[in-house]
Simulated scan of single mutants.
Amino acid sequence: MNNDINKALEVLKSGGVILYPTDTIWGIGCDATNADAVKRVYEIKQREDCKAMLVLMENPNRLNSYVDEVPEIAWDLIEANDKPMTLIYPGAKNLAPNLINSDGTIGIRISNEEFTQNLIQRFKKPIVSTSANISGDPSPANFSEINEELKGLVDYVVEYKQDDFEKASASSIIKIGVGGEIQILRK
């Protein structure tokens, strides 16, 4: 795993794009603060840049660096949650402008997966995470279901967990309003 992390770090630091395992499904990722890298992810996915992508962090303590004000309910949800959950926060900041939704929100998930946590911790910045598929195609449940063409479009394909055939599923998605109101978008 360390060799994979070192190679992925090198690619992320140079503005490249990786294909990597997350705490849910395999993802396409890049430096979430690099607008050119984010643009390339949209191009690889053949996705309109107005369609949201989320970012992964390894620690909720970093949220204040990327969100103006973390609503109190967010801390309660993070603490109580026992499965992957993406929270959509108002007031995104310090991220690539083409990653922030037109309403100023950003989806953030705190990853509990060992590889991703170590990668983000060493990178010291959040990374983009979007399903490893061409926009409109089904999301792959494991590495073996990822389109071969897509694998050739990224700069590095992580080897860790390629032989894991367990079917993964996407995270729940909850949108949090400025006043702490919540809206469940996906269970």
Rank of each mutant, 00 (worst) to 15 (best):
94 N>L: 03
169 S>A: 09
91 G>D: 10
70 V>K: 01
128 V>N: 10
23 D>P: 10
77 L>F: 02
187 K>P: 10
175 K>S: 02
36 D>G: 01
90 P>N: 13
37 A>Q: 12
113 E>D: 09
26 W>Q: 05
131 S>I: 04
160 Y>M: 03
42 Y>P: 07
6 N>I: 00
147 N>D: 15
36 D>K: 14
52 A>S: 11
41 V>D: 08
112 N>S: 10
89 Y>R: 11
46 Q>L: 07
49 D>A: 01
146 I>G: 10
55 V>C: 11
187 K>A: 14
163 D>F: 02
4 D>A: 01
187 K>I: 06
40 R>M: 02
52 A>D: 12
96 A>P: 11
173 I>E: 02
182 I>Q: 03
145 E>Y: 15
186 R>Q: 14
181 E>L: 06
153 L>N: 06
77 L>Y: 02
12 L>I: 14
20 Y>W: 10
79 E>Y: 04
161 K>H: 09
41 V>N: 09
89 Y>A: 02
59 N>M: 00
116 T>I: 00
83 K>I: 14
161 K>D: 08
47 R>D: 11
186 R>W: 12
91 G>M: 02
134 I>T: 08
71 P>Y: 03
20 Y>F: 15
60 P>S: 11
31 D>R: 09
164 D>A: 03
111 S>F: 00
63 L>P: 00
122 R>E: 07
147 N>K: 15
142 N>H: 15
141 A>W: 01
63 L>S: 02
141 A>M: 14
70 V>H: 01
159 E>Y: 00
12 L>S: 11
8 A>P: 00
15 G>P: 15
26 W>K: 00
94 N>G: 04
149 E>K: 14
121 Q>L: 07
171 S>Y: 03
173 I>T: 03
157 V>I: 04
105 T>P: 10
40 R>C: 06
27 G>R: 08
39 K>S: 14
89 Y>E: 12
19 L>D: 11
18 I>T: 12
70 V>E: 01
138 P>I: 11
78 I>Q: 14
54 L>R: 04
1 M>G: 07
52 A>P: 08
162 Q>N: 05
75 W>T: 05
96 A>D: 15
64 N>R: 09
82 D>I: 10
27 G>V: 13
25 I>M: 13
61 N>T: 06
38 V>K: 07
131 S>R: 05
151 K>S: 10
27 G>I: 06
31 D>H: 11
76 D>F: 01
83 K>Y: 12
106 I>F: 04
45 K>Y: 01
38 V>I: 08
183 Q>T: 15
81 N>W: 09
177 G>E: 13
170 A>C: 06
156 Y>A: 07
65 S>E: 14
150 L>S: 09
33 T>C: 10
166 E>N: 08
75 W>P: 01
88 I>A: 05
154 V>H: 05
